[in-house]
């Protein structure tokens, strides 16, 4: 009995899309990955509109370069790699804009204000929404090389092997980067994690 598209695994779906140009298979993959990718990109870039554009660009790239996917890799790692590269490019572009911008207002300054403990009393800090905001602001201050890995591991919940495949690093490097990223994050959030 033939399986319906919804029952197929990601790898089978992309094969179906590659072999028969089945747009339904493509749409299904978009449905499965749009939100996880959005969450990953948003945590990395910190802007919803830009993140949405990046995810859309990722899906366009997937559509146009479907044949560059090889079946020995996991589809999830392939699509995360595309999204990660686009997000990193966006960060670089922003950095250049900040360097040549005459305006003193930028994202870093905002994040410094939020992270400053004088803005919030300890009672307010316990509020989960504010805590989440603080964590997000702190995440954006972590070096991008560590940030990406920490998000993939602790936010997206991917395995070390998957992260190694996405980032093109060895598992040992991935582990050490996770550790450094977490330490940086904990230092930035020392008001929350006092112990």
């Amino acid at each position: 009995m033939k399986k319906t598209l919804t029952e197929l695994k990601d790898e089978d779906l992309i094969k179906e899309f590659q072999d028969n140009d089945t747009i339904g298979a493509y749409e299904l993959l978009v449905k499965r990955y749009k939100d996880p990718l959005m969450n990953f990109v948003y945590r990395f870039v910190g802007d919803k509109d830009i993140s949405s554009d990046i995810v859309q660009e990722t899906m366009i790239k997937f559509y146009l370069n479907k044949n560059s996917y090889r079946s020995f890799a996991k589809f999830s790692t392939w699509i995360y790699t595309i999204a990660g590269n686009l997000a990193k490019n966006e960060l670089k572009r922003r950095k250049r804009r900040v360097i040549f911008s005459l305006s003193p207002h930028d994202d870093d300054e905002k994040s410094i204000q939020v992270a400053d403990k004088t803005f919030f009393s300890p009672e307010v800090q316990t509020d989960s929404n504010i805590k989440n905001d603080l964590i997000q602001q702190a995440l954006l201050k972590v070096k991008p090389v560590y940030r990406e890995i920490v998000i993939l591991r602790d936010v997206q919940g991917l395995s070390y092997e998957e992260i190694a495949e996405i980032s093109g690093l060895s598992i040992g490097t991935v582990k050490s980067r996770i550790n450094r990223g977490r330490s940086q994050l904990q230092k930035l959030l020392k008001n929350i994690y006092k112990d």
């Binding site: 945590r43 997000q136 920490v150 919940g157």
Partner: peptide, 10 residues
């Protein structure tokens, strides 16, 4: 806390 961050959707 990182794992329990709200999931952002498209």
């Amino acid at each position: 806390d990182l794992h329990n961050l709200p999931k952002i959707q498209t």
